[in-house]
């Protein structure tokens, strides 16, 4: 090993970069497909009573549902909805985590309160808390986003709090304060840039959980309204037709959800490894 491993060289030899880029490309293509296609909603809503409950064919790749709607279009639309809800919830959850972590570092009493809050949220099964919040807000898209955001901040808060406590004691931060820089300057120029990668990765890793919990909540009947083409709604509907042998109604929407969640999970983990230097060199 020569002593000149510049960052670019290290990255070029790193197979994980390829994984990250590959997943990223996949996701960008998926998002573009979901957002750009305007005919999707039209196709998903168009019912054709001549083509009810068709098994997958070349015309309808995923088959059709009981009203003769194209299951492929409906699945894609459901995934787009999941993406949107998941992104909003993950962003909101990350912001809550950042705010509470900052609060916890201010003084000891605030730290105790935040610790108690974290323990309380973790002390209740996620799904029950989600249900209670969605119940309190009366259901609907907004309620789901808020409920998922309010249940997913604790683990990230713990990570960010530990990181902030360490940063506060770091030499360069203390030196900066000694040189007379203001609190705001230190936060803006030293603390936030150091925390940003953690927020990014943490938020990205919240995303798959958020999507899964949104789908579960909707499946149980507390989340998005039955009129929306969410994956949870599609699967809850499929339950009525499973014993009659219409398997495609239950298989394909869930498969789509699995692939979406898996892609985000892998991307988040790949990014985390890239941003953690000692692991990235392996």
């Amino acid at each position: 090993m020569s002593a000149t491993p510049s960052p670019r060289l290290a990255l070029r030899g790193n197979p994980r970069l390829g994984l990250a880029l590959g997943t990223l490309t996949l996701l960008v293509a998926l998002v573009a497909l979901l957002i750009v296609t305007p005919q999707l909603a039209e196709r998903a809503g168009a019912s054709d009573f001549q083509a009810r409950l068709l098994a997958p064919t070349t015309d309808y790749w995923f088959g059709t549902d009981v009203l003769g709607r194209d299951l492929l279009a409906r699945t894609l639309q459901g995934l787009a909805l999941s993406l949107w809800v998941g992104a909003a919830a993950a962003l909101l959850g990350t912001l809550i985590a950042l705010g509470l972590a900052a609060l916890a570092c201010l003084d000891r009493r605030a730290d105790a309160v935040v610790g108690l809050l974290v323990d309380s949220v973790l002390g209740l099964p996620h799904l029950i808390l989600l249900m209670l919040i969605a119940f309190a807000l009366g259901g609907g898209t907004q309620a789901v986003i808020i409920a998922v955001a309010l249940t997913h901040w604790p683990s990230l808060t713990r990570v960010l709090r530990a990181e902030l406590l360490q940063l506060q004691q770091a030499d360069y931060v203390r030196l900066s304060r000694r040189f007379g820089k203001s609190r705001g300057f230190v936060i803006w120029h030293h603390l936030l840039p150091a925390l940003l990668p953690h927020c990014l990765v943490g938020g990205l890793l919240l995303f798959p959980h958020a999507i899964l919990h949104e789908a579960a909540l909707t499946f149980l009947g507390f989340g998005l309204s039955p009129g929306q083409p969410a994956i949870g709604v599609l699967l809850a509907e499929s339950m009525r037709y499973l014993s009659a042998g219409y398997w495609w109604l239950g298989v394909f929407p869930g498969l789509g959800l699995l692939l979406l969640v898996l892609a985000f999970d892998r991307l988040g983990n790949a990014l985390r490894r890239l941003l953690t230097p000692h692991e990235a060199q392996q």
Binding site: F219, L235, L242, S243, L258, V261
Partner: peptide
């Protein structure tokens, strides 16, 4: 990794389809 990303209720639906139906 795949299992960690699988929706629980979908796994249950698959099991129901395969083993029961």
């Amino acid at each position: 990794y795949t299992l960690a990303s699988t929706p629980t209720f979908w796994l249950a639906i698959l099991g129901l389809l395969l083993f029961s139906v």
